[in-house]
Write a protein that binds this DNA or RNA. Structure first.
Lengths: 401, 401
DNA sequence: GGCTTTTGTTGTTCCGATGAACTTATCTTC
DNA sequence: GAAGATAAGTTCATCGGAACAACAAAAGCC
């Protein structure tokens, strides 16, 4: 087995076929990332490759069924009409899975990012047994994978989003505080399922994957942002020039544990999560422990003073922690996800006030704050995109011999 | 510090000559980064290129006078003796400059990182006039550049380290709090000097460049670390896999402005600098405002209670801020630079205590704390290395036509 | 119906890495 | 000290891959 060679990546020697790999990946990205179908000539113009070269590359992608030709449409312009190229539909799927505190799910997307199938189950997995929960996930995934196989869809791979610290890709899961799981060999347990044993999931942190999904729907504007995801815990991620910043092990973005509110002595001091986690907000708002996000929003709409005060406190804490993060990573756009998206209306002012005050670069580059657009369960989509990315970076592996 | 064009870098089309560029840079790095001279055969073995290819590439590097052949040494082994290759000496120089709060200087290094010349002047530049100071810097740089030219050394370029926020590479300097400079067109002012007008310096933050020098002396272990530099201000930088993480504008690593010690309300709250900046430590130690680092160290050696207490407070604050940073960027090694290096003995315990307590990944990957090894004025070296890097990444530009 | 314009394809050429054979320079062994 | 053995570096034919230019195809324009 040859080592996985990426085209001319840093430190590796560039051979003849590195060129092909690189340009093939480049061409594929042009098709996948374009908002509407593109022609070979468009790709040539965008990449600087010649039309001849692009034609040869596209031929390979067509053969591999990664790209499809659509019917030409009348362009109303002079010249031979272009053949529109689009991501192939129903040929290749990527499967994203997620285990979170209150639900688990499976979502399959195709090369165009279209959802092919999805299954989501609610539950309460705080303090749950990993084997039991992961068995349940496998039971959810099996029919999805079977359905895809029946339809002749090739499965590019699987990935699993987890609300905790995961060693990049292969695991193990070190710690998921709100599940109360630690040192769980997730891949090993899932391998008990015969189907998943054949395509072990890549593991990653839920917030990082949600940020990936967000980066995709934004299609590059902004291409760099900090993503904070409010769930039971508070997660974060950094997207720089469209790519997830994973850190050394994949443990980056743990904003939830930012220390705030030390009262003079550094031995006390609560973390962001203790101010802006869902439980903290609910408690401060004076709602019962079982209150949901919807209950919080409702309280806000009724202008309940205690709720508004809780939102302001959470917003300030979030703003301070985000300012620290922005000062360190130098990214001027912040995206609110999870429950922070639902509560954005009530948090916005306090968050922005702290950001504008604490971020030293604010006078030269205003901090923008926006609400996540990636829809329900973005980490599931992000997990599938993670798989897709490996394919997009290495399309040569999918070519017919 | 932004990504200068790499051969076949992401998003660019790879042409035939991209291969050459890439492999040429790869070969050059092998020679420059090796601790001792290497042969063509060594390079071939290390890179996977064939000896034939390496020979051809090395010939070009010899012609460009970037690499030199040394006298063969008896290897005591069978076989034809290898021709040792080393960075060329005295052919190409990179010039690093620095303006800081209490000194300014110029340092020229060659391809091997050897210091060719350097000039440093002390001063007190708080609240200084940028034109005056930069004129003085130019007056310091001119003879250095002249000397190099006289000796037939080609100058690869210049770079300038500044203790503040600089827009990547071309400036302007947005803010240097301790100089009390803001929105200074540094490159424009230096262009009044006829010599520097011909080779305008790249600008970057002092801490980022010091971290670059540190990464160089460490030669890759650790290849990822957080660097905190205590000066009058507190600067920071992130090195990931040997490369400086610059952020979106080059404003990353501003750990000095981390908010700590908010007493319940988020409207108060001091920054790290107000606990661990030199002035803060001096004041808390009960020393006169004019006290130097040496005075602080002396007070520590005399076990003066107020000094030790000040060190403990600074260490705790630093530890909390570093923990926040490590949680966000996921790097398990911390390097203390500037005055923190001198005071490391007294800070270590408090810093480590906070790190071990606050970094959530500490149980799985112990945080290591070490002292900077890059010597005096590392940012000057780092600035020169910044220039060198552009050459190393694009050696093709230096080839004879 | 010729002309223009744009798309996609077909050779040919050129560049760069490979691989095998060859030369060079040492050590080893009898 | 001559004959291998071993390793370093070079030479040359070959091959893969992109560029370039010429050409065919399919439209609109007058």
């Amino acid at each position: 087995m040859s080592p996985p060679r990426r085209a001319a990546s840093r430190g590796r020697t560039a051979r003849q076929d590195s060129l092909r790999h690189h340009n093939l990946a480049l061409t594929l990205r042009q098709v996948l990332d374009a908002p509407s179908p593109v022609s070979r000539a468009d790709i040539a113009a965008a990449t600087g490759l010649t039309r001849a070269t692009v034609s040869a590359l596209v031929d390979r992608l067509l053969e591999a069924r990664l790209v499809a030709e659509l019917e030409p449409v009348a362009s109303q312009r002079a010249g031979r009409p272009a053949v529109p190229l689009a991501p192939a539909r129903g040929t290749v799927a990527a499967v994203g899975m997620e285990v979170n505190v209150d639900y688990l799910g499976v979502r399959a997307i195709d090369l165009g990012g279209r959802v092919l199938t999805e299954r989501v189950e609610s539950g309460d997995f705080r303090g749950s047994n990993p084997e039991v929960v992961l068995d349940r996930l496998a039971a959810l995934a099996d029919p999805v994978l079977a359905l895809l196989s029946d339809e002749g869809v090739m499965i590019a791979g699987t990935a699993l989003a987890l609300p905790g610290l995961v060693d990049s890709i292969t695991g193990p899961l070190r710690l998921a505080p709100n599940l109360r799981w630690w040192d769980v060999d997730v891949v090993g347990i899932l391998a008990a399922d015969p189907v998943l044993a054949g395509m072990p999931p890549r593991l990653a942190n839920e917030a990082n994957l949600a940020a990936r999904a967000e980066a995709r729907v934004r299609r590059g504007s902004p291409s760099s942002f900090v993503y904070v995801s409010g769930e039971v815990g508070v997660g974060g991620a950094i997207v720089l020039h469209g790519a997830i910043y994973a850190g050394r092990h994949g443990w980056s973005g743990e904003i939830g544990h930012t220390v705030l509110g030390t009262a003079g002595s550094f031995d006390q001091g609560g973390t962001l999560e203790s101010y802006a986690g869902q439980d903290a907000i609910v408690e401060r708002a004076g709602l019962p422990r079982s209150a949901t996000v919807a209950d919080l929003v409702a309280a806000g709409q009724r202008h309940e003073p205690r709720a508004l005060e809780a939102f302001a406190a959470a917003g300030s804490a979030l703003g301070v922690a985000l300012a620290n993060m922005v000062n360190i990573v130098d990214v001027e756009h912040v995206v609110l996800g999870g429950i922070f998206a639902d509560l954005a209306e009530y948090l916005r002012e306090a968050v922005l006030a702290q950001l504008e005050r604490r971020v030293i670069t604010a006078p030269w580059s205003a901090i923008e704050l926006s609400v996540a657009q990636a829809g329900q369960h973005p980490a599931m989509t992000g997990a599938a995109l993670e798989v897709l990315q490996t394919l997009v970076e290495e399309p040569a592996g999918w070519l017919p011999i």
